[in-house]
Simulated scan of single mutants.
Amino acid sequence: MTKSTKSAAKKPAASKTAPKGASKAAKTAPAPAAAAKVAKTQIIDLVADATTLSKKQAAEAVSSMLDLVVAALKDGKSVGLPGLGTLSVAATAERQGVRPGTSDRITIPAGKKVRFKVASTLKGTL
């Protein structure tokens, strides 16, 4: 490919049916936040950098905190994380559903799920 065909391949042709200014908004729109994910190892690195803890100590602290949150949720307790939100366990009722592909009616049993309510301070800053 020549240089001019490479740049033409990268730029899609502007749609004549799009309203004026729509192409500018699409170009300046930020990337979706769902594409980025912070892994546990990255959290450990950030904790180690923000504190005087070594990476090994930070890993133990983060793992202990996560274990305590999971244990509290298993006991049916809610966990409040100031500035972040509240995790709680909620019961779900038995309900009817449809099996995808076959359209068979099925009964989905009652169960439990974890709910998260965002803190108002975080919600206001997003």
Rank of each mutant, 00 (worst) to 15 (best):
D49S: 14
A119H: 07
G111N: 04
S103N: 15
A9F: 08
V89W: 03
A61T: 06
G21L: 10
G111Q: 06
K117R: 14
S78R: 13
T17Y: 14
K3L: 14
E60F: 04
A22L: 14
A14R: 13
M65C: 07
L81Y: 05
K56Y: 06
K74E: 01
K74C: 05
D45G: 07
A8R: 12
D45Y: 04
G76V: 05
A14P: 08
K27F: 09
A58L: 05
K10T: 13
T52P: 05
L84F: 14
M65G: 01
Q96A: 11
L46M: 11
D67S: 03
L46A: 12
L81E: 03
A61Y: 03
P32R: 11
T121K: 08
L68M: 05
T41M: 04
T86M: 03
A9K: 13
G124M: 09
T5G: 07
S23T: 14
R115V: 09
R115I: 06
M1Q: 11
S54A: 09
P82A: 10
P32L: 11
K123L: 07
V70M: 02
A26T: 09
V79W: 01
A59G: 06
P19C: 13
A48K: 02
T52N: 14
A33C: 13
K40V: 03
V62C: 00
G83Y: 05
A93H: 06
V118E: 07
T17H: 15
K10N: 14
A22V: 15
Q57K: 15
A36H: 12
Q96L: 07
A58E: 02
K37R: 10
T107Q: 03
S23Y: 12
K10M: 11
A50I: 04
T125E: 15
